[in-house]
Every structure is written in structure tokens, then in C-alpha cells.
Design a protein around this nucleic acid. Sequence first.
DNA 1: TATTTTTTCGACTTTCGGTCGAAAAACTCT
DNA 2: AGAGTTTTTCGACCGAAAGTCGAAAAAATA
Lengths: 196, 196
Amino acid sequence: MKKGERRKRELLEIAYRMFIARGYENTSVDDIIAEAGIAKGTYYYHFESKEQTLEEVIGMMIEQETEAAKQVLQADIPVPQKIVGIIASLRPRQEEQPIEGALMRPENLIMHSKIKRRLIETVVPLLSEAVEQGIAQGIFSCDCIPERVRMLMTVSSETFDEGRFSQRDVAVFIDMTEKLLGAKPGTMGFIRELIR
Amino acid sequence: MKKGERRKRELLEIAYRMFIARGYENTSVDDIIAEAGIAKGTYYYHFESKEQTLEEVIGMMIEQETEAAKQVLQADIPVPQKIVGIIASLRPRQEEQPIEGALMRPENLIMHSKIKRRLIETVVPLLSEAVEQGIAQGIFSCDCIPERVRMLMTVSSETFDEGRFSQRDVAVFIDMTEKLLGAKPGTMGFIRELIR
DNA sequence: TATTTTTTCGACTTTCGGTCGAAAAACTCT
DNA sequence: AGAGTTTTTCGACCGAAAGTCGAAAAAATA
């Protein structure tokens, strides 16, 4: 009674690839089962609905993305680098699967928003901890850490995720980060390197 | 050759009401034509697709929302009030159509995001002008105005649009606004009144 | 009035998410 | 091994919804 789990993983893997490559909306259940070589009933034996599949696929993505972020948090590097490292670790890397631009295209609006939301959900606590460390070290100085971190993440994903941003955007974001966290001007300047 | 325009307006009006009341996804073309008492062919004579209808409906909304904002910009009141006034003028007013919570519910993700995007698009220039005025008066002091304004709007809509926010969110947002625009602490404190 | 253009109609097609009952495969227990 | 039970698979079928199309009706034009 564990064949089911394997099958589900397999389907999840396929859905994951297809959702990323062609978008959630442009991938039909028929596409998925054709690729997997199974019947429709089988698909719906493993998943409640197409949307639930998306939910689980996003879960996989998040988990994967979060992995790296956690590493960075534990690492023995200066706090500002940690923060930047975490943010960078979960930005959709261009070199990856998303063939063709893909993930952020208007057709994928739904997937995009859902990912964004859950990513923020899971990463805010991690980043907040890093900021706490920074405060303990006298690098930052502020209250309401989770709220501040969340706003920073919101702006970051909304501004940088879709590629079209200017150097001025970067400059303002750096300024904003420093001011929101109560850091000395220049502390976060090296963000420039990572966004690019 | 102008009966067409009237019909289209009528359809747009109906679609507008239904999209707001029940959400884009939950409104079928059949619903719309039933309400309008016309045949499907007629609908598709006037619109390319359901999505294009949404696009035009959003256009109507934006236009409408922007109206008030422009008034505020011209008004003879202190700049900080203008800014808050503009933002307030285009936040979905609860008392309005959106019966049942409605507009911001997860089902309406698509409509919601599209509105958000186009709203920011059209309002950033207006707000930027207000900020310019503020700078001229020595109330604010910053560069990269449109970028800063856009980020503020992003955070604002992402944080406050869906109802679930805390007083700490408000406090941080005020702090952020003042710091991003280079205003004296306390300048924007009255935002508190308007959110909530 | 004749003709041309615009508008309307509604049956039909296609696509897609989802259901269901029954068969097959895998597992359990004596 | 064989009977019985549970899990997994199958694919025909369903209903909803977006979109098409040719032809008729209405309106404008000459």
C-alpha cells in the first residue's frame, strides 16, 4: 500500500514541470495524464482537484526554495550578507527551468500570486530572525520586525521579480531597507551586486 | 451606426456590476447575456473575449477611481493631506457594491491583481506630482520620486487591501512613508485616521 | 425602393474539470 | 494456495463554460 505515494510523487513532478514550463492555466489535466500515461480516474484518485495539485506543487517549490534560505541563516557570515543571501536564494533564478521567461507572464498570474504569498509567509520568520541577530549586534535598530520584513519582501518581489526594473529601483530599495531597519547608510549597499 | 456603442456600454455596465458582485471567475458569459437578454452571438459581436471584457471593465473602474484622485491633487490643502486623500480615494470603499466582502476574496485573484496593477500604473504619476509639490514646499526631501511612490503604493495595497492588518502595520507604514520621502517624523501621522 | 452595412440570433463545437461504477492489482489472513 | 479485502487503475460519460458561424433581421445609405 505504498505504490500510491510513488505515483503521486511522479504526477507531482510532472505537474511541476508542466506548470513551470507552460503555466498553470495552459496546462490541462488531460495534458498531465497524457504525459504520465495514465487514465483520468487515476489522476483524480490521487488529487482532489487541479487546484489542489497546484497547491501541492507550490508546496514543493517553497520547500525547495526555503532550503537554501535556511542554510544561509545558519551560516557564519555577516548579518547583512545573510539577509541579502536569503532574499537572493529565493528569487526565481533565470537560469532555471522557467524556459521562455515563463513564470511571471500574465497568463500565470494565479500561480505567481500564490507562490508569492506562500513564499512571503514562510520566509518572513527566517528573515526576521536574521534581523534580530543584526539588532543584537548593533547593526540594525528597529521595532516591529516581522512587519518591516514583510513589507520589504513585498516590495522586493513586486519590484524585482518581473525583470523590468531600473538601477534607481535598486537604489531606492537599498535606501528603504537601511531606513526601515535602522541601519547606517551604506550598510546594505552591496545589494546592488546581487540584484543586477 | 451607433446603436452598437449603446449596446456595448450596456453590456459593460452589466458585466461591471456582476464582476464586482460575484467575481470575474464566478460570472459566466451566459450569466451576462441572460441578464442583458441578448444572444451569445451579440455578445461576441461586441467583445473579442470574456477577458477583453474584463480589461474594459477595469478600465471603467480605474477611470472612475482616478477621477476623485485628480480632484484631490488640484485642491488647496496641505500636501500630506493630498497624498493621504489620493490613496484613500482609490482604496475600495467597503460601503460600495462589493456585497459580501467579494472583491478581494481568493476567487477573484485575477481581477484583483489586474486592478491593482493598473491602479498603480495610473496613480503613481498623480502621487508623484503631489510629492513634487511637497518637496517644493520643503516638507519632503528625496530623489527618485516615482520609484519611491510606486513602492509605497505597492506596500499599501498589498498590506491594507485585504482587511487583515494590525496597528503595527499602520505604524510601520507611516514610519516608512516619512523615511522614504524624507519627511520629518510625525508629518504623516494622521494616516492613522484614514486607514482602519 | 434597392442595396449595403451593422447588428442580432441561437444552434453547434470544443475544451476542460470532474464523476462513477466496475475491473484489475496488491495485500492480508487462514 | 485460495478467499476475501483494500488499494489502485481505467475510461466512458457528464455538465459547464467559452467561443464560432452562417443566416436572418434591422438600420443606414443611396
